[in-house]
Computed example of a mutant assay.
Amino acid sequence: MNTANRITLARIALIPLFMFFFAEWPAKLADAAVFRFLNEYGSYMAVAIFVLASGTDKLDGYIARKYNQITNLGKLLDPLADKLLISVALIMMVQADMIASWVAVIMIGREFVITGLRMIASAQGIALAADRFGKWKMVAQVVAIVAVMLENVPFQWFTYIRVDQLLMLLALLMTLASGVHYLVNNFKALKLNEM
């Protein structure tokens, strides 16, 4: 296994650690100092882990291209790791009542639709590459998730506006727009291929 794939696997391995720190531990366990600490500061550690995991997405791609380590395993694992990381973060934020459930449903649903389209294309022998709109969408989602997990810090020091929620709305709009763009551009290729 090459370095790029190891980094991708490390990103996947960080997801349970992110969940551990982000979770709200039951009050029954609050007597133990470790759980009291986790309930008070765990979310900040979760943010750090999330940012680290998100950053490895660029790193593994860079290494794969620079050192010619692009593999079929990497092509499978890299988008899977991204989808898992974002989906887990969104689901846990819904559980923590930080975002509305419909926001998570739309963002995660978009990934299911695009993955389904890629599977259909793959069955037809067509490789659908990610476009720049998908990459911008990923960046917007990461920024919005971090802002919401930090509960509008540091923006709350400068304004009463919930910048974190505005960033989440922007990420949602970019998610929808990039999904529509991807479907329109690639569905034509699939229809042409079937004729």
Rank of each mutant, 00 (worst) to 15 (best):
N2V: 06
N2P: 01
L14G: 10
F18R: 08
M19G: 14
F21Y: 13
F21S: 05
F22N: 05
A23G: 06
E24C: 02
P26Y: 08
P26Q: 01
L29Y: 08
A33D: 11
A33W: 15
V34C: 01
V34R: 04
Y41G: 00
M45H: 00
A53K: 02
T56R: 11
T56W: 02
D57G: 03
I63A: 01
K66Q: 14
Q69T: 05
Q69D: 12
N72T: 09
G74T: 06
K83Y: 04
L84G: 07
L85H: 07
V88G: 04
I91L: 10
M92E: 07
M93Q: 14
D97Q: 14
M98S: 11
S101P: 07
I106M: 13
I108Y: 12
G109T: 11
F112N: 12
I114A: 02
G116E: 09
R118N: 02
I120A: 12
A121K: 09
S122E: 12
S122W: 09
A129P: 03
A129F: 00
A130F: 04
D131K: 10
K135R: 07
W136L: 15
V139H: 04
A140K: 05
Q141V: 03
A144P: 06
A144E: 07
L150K: 08
F155R: 11
F155V: 10
W157Y: 13
V163Q: 12
D164A: 00
D164W: 08
L166N: 08
L169S: 08
M174K: 01
A177C: 03
A177G: 10
V180C: 07
L183V: 15
V184T: 09
V184H: 06
N186M: 15
N186W: 12
F187N: 12
K188M: 14
A189T: 15
A189C: 02
L192I: 11
M195V: 14
M195Q: 10
